[in-house]
């Protein structure tokens, strides 16, 4: 990727919550989808000068990735703290053969 985005990284529960303020427009869709209500508004401002989101507002993160899934702007990346690799396809789709260039 020729463009780099700076993350705010927060460890919470089972997850490592990477939030990219330059992408987050503060829509709050993720807050509503979080099954453990851990996501809430942060002090930091995002792409449109509105607050971004952060974990730590409810029960601990269970790393279910729903927030990542519904974010229209790819502003959230959830890593599992149990040490799985950093790159995980968003929707866990199997790679089609011959995909690699």
């Amino acid at each position: 990727m020729s463009v780099a985005f700076k993350p705010i990284t927060t460890e919470n529960g089972k997850g490592i919550f990477h939030l990219f303020p330059a992408l987050c427009k503060g829509c709050g869709l993720c807050i509503e989808k979080c099954p453990v209500d851990t996501i809430g508004w942060a002090r930091q401002l995002g792409a449109f000068g509105t607050p971004v989101v952060e974990p730590g507002h409810g029960k601990p993160c269970i790393a279910c990735k729903k927030c990542q899934l519904v974010c229209p702007d790819a502003a959230i990346w959830i890593e599992r703290r149990n040490g799985q690799g950093r790159t995980d396809a968003l929707t866990a789709a199997p790679q089609a053969p011959g995909n690699e260039k």
Binding site: M1, S2, T9, D73, A74, A75, W77, T87, A89
Partner: peptide, 14 residues
């Protein structure tokens, strides 16, 4: 860490 955009997304226009 970088955003997990689909590879075909154009990061320059985000």
């Amino acid at each position: 860490a970088q955003p997990q955009m689909p590879r075909v997304w154009r990061a320059e226009s985000k």
